[in-house]
Structure formats: C-alpha cells, structure tokens
C-alpha cells in the first residue's frame, strides 16, 4: 500500500526524469543504428571528387540532385518495380498460407513422423546455397521455368524459415484456446482459422516483414534464374552501376535508397499489428 502512495507523490517528476533519460538513450542508440543509412543519403548526393574525399565529407558542398535523375533515367525502373511487386506480393501471401498451415500441424497436432519431418525441414537451412544452386537450377530447367517469374515464386513458398518461426510462436499459445473450441465442436480447420491465426498476428506480421524484405532484396535468385530484361527485378537494375573494375557509388546509393524505401514503409505500417497482438491476447485472459 505505501509503495503506491509513494509512487503517487513522486510520480510526476521522477516519471518525467525517467522518460527524458530513456529518450536520450534511445536517441543515441538510434543514431548508432542509422549512421550508415545517413552515409548512403550523403553519398547519393555527392559528385565523384567529394565522394572519395579524405577525410570524408558528410554534407556535400554541391548537392547533386542530378544523381537521382541520372539513376532514374538509367533503367526502366517502373517495369522493374512492378515485376518486384508481383514476385514479392505473391511470395508473401503464398508463404503465409503454406507456412502457417504447416506450422499449425507441427505445433498443435500429433501425427507419426512429425518431428522427423520437421528436422528435415530445418536441415535444409543448414546447407549453404552455393552447393544447392546448380541442382535447383536443373530442376527449374526441367520444369521449363527458367527465365520466368514462377522460378522465383513457387520454390520460395515452402520456406523452412517461415514454418520454424510460426511453429515457435504457435507453441506459446495456451492449449486451453483450442480445447474450448473443440468442446464447441470445432474441427481442425476451424481451430486453425478462427483460433490460432487471429491470435498469431504479431508472428504472421513478423514473417510477412521478413519475407517481404528477403524477396524484395533478393539478388542472387533473379540473377541466376532470369535473363530477359523485361522480367528483371529492382535489385538487378541496381547492379548496372556495378562494373567489373569500377563502382559508381553515388548512383548505386541513390538507387539502393529508393529501392529500400518500400521495405521501410511496409515495416512501419506493419508495426500496428504488434500493438493489436497485445489487445487480442489481453482479451483472452
């Protein structure tokens, strides 16, 4: 009782002090995290001579907005953008469906061979892609999928990472949730759709963010499986600024910034679901 009283008395000043301290710490830490990003912004606005200046210059004397114009004019970016949106969108949606179904079975149902199959899935993540790239390419060739978008979409749907992530989250949901539903006569599909999925929004959001980011930024996949210009994705477009001997950093950074902007927007938007998660699980108590 007297703890509460004391709190009430000292609350405003101590709370404000605490908040200010917290914000100072957060600002410093945030600054540590965004420095390279700021450097990208700065480099993207420099000319060649300032770009390589020693010691480095943070604010260019002459701000080269023209780098962005040059970058925009260098490739059919709108086409690349739509290609990337198509591939990324389908992979995110497809992966959420496929992985959440599998994760549901691996975490909430019992069936023979369950753990062995799950470990097999995990196992495929432990082999570096450098040795599986050629056989994967052979499969896609046999399927006639080389130089098509499905080569980037379909194999990405069965992602072991996604199953593992969702399984771990589904496991934290209390058993009572589905027991109550079972008593109400719900089958497994209903439990999956009406009980598990609504309670796993933070996890599904997390997977969506990662999948979005991974697919959007994927470079090696499109590079190996695509040849035609009209199918290319944004990351391949960026590579035009990379020569064998020289890199045009200022254009590359300008491009990289524009390309990563959608990920940032999606991430900030997706955070809303983190808060919703609290509300939902709070209600279930």
């Amino acid at each position: 009782m007297d703890i509460k009283q004391e709190n009430r008395a000292g609350k405003p000043r101590r709370k404000i002090l605490k908040a200010v301290l917290l914000h100072i710490v957060m600002v410093i830490l945030s600054f540590l995290m965004i420095t390279p990003f700021l450097w990208m912004v700065s480099t993207s606005l420099k000319n060649m001579n300032e770009m390589y200046a020693i010691p480095p210059i943070w604010i260019p004397r002459e701000v080269m907005w023209s780098n962005y114009r040059y970058m925009f004019e260098s490739a059919p970016w709108l086409l690349y953008f739509f290609n990337t949106v198509k591939v990324t969108g389908l992979v995110v949606v497809g992966q959420l469906v496929v992985c959440s179904m599998a994760a549901f079975a691996f975490s909430r149902l019992r069936f023979p061979g369950r753990d062995a199959l799950f470990f097999m899935l995990l196992g495929t993540m432990m082999i570096p892609y450098h040795v599986t790239m050629i056989p994967t390419f052979q499969i896609l060739r046999r399927l006639g999928w080389l130089d098509t978008h499905q080569a980037l979409i379909v194999p990405a749907l069965s992602a072991a990472f996604g199953v593992f992530l969702l399984r771990q989250f589904f496991m934290t949901l209390p058993r009572e949730l589905e027991q109550a539903a079972m008593i109400d006569g719900c089958g497994y599909p209903r439990i999956f759709l009406n009980v598990i999925l609504p309670n796993a929004k933070p996890a599904l959001t997390t997977l969506a963010i990662f999948t979005f980011m991974g697919t959007w930024n994927d470079f090696l996949g499109p590079l190996i499986y695509l040849n035609s210009d009209h199918l290319k994705t944004l990351t391949l477009g960026l590579a035009t600024f990379q020569g064998v001997y020289t890199n045009q950093w200022n254009y590359m950074m300008a491009g990289a910034l524009i390309v990563s902007l959608p990920i940032l927007i999606v991430y900030m938007f997706a955070q809303r679901y983190f808060v919703q998660g609290i509300v939902m699980s709070g209600l279930k108590e």
Binding site: M133, I134, F137, Q138, N227, D229, L236, A239, Q242
Partner: peptide
C-alpha cells in the same frame, strides 16, 4: 542477351552445368 551480371562465374558455371 543473357545477362550474367556481376557474379559472372556463378552464373556462367550454373548455366553450363544446368545445360543452358
């Protein structure tokens, strides 16, 4: 054109051994 891009060795080797 077959653009082999910046990872020339990886793509060339994959194309050859992939029969393409």
């Amino acid at each position: 054109w077959v653009d082999i891009g910046t990872e020339r060795y990886q793509k060339t080797l994959t194309l050859i051994s992939g029969g393409n």
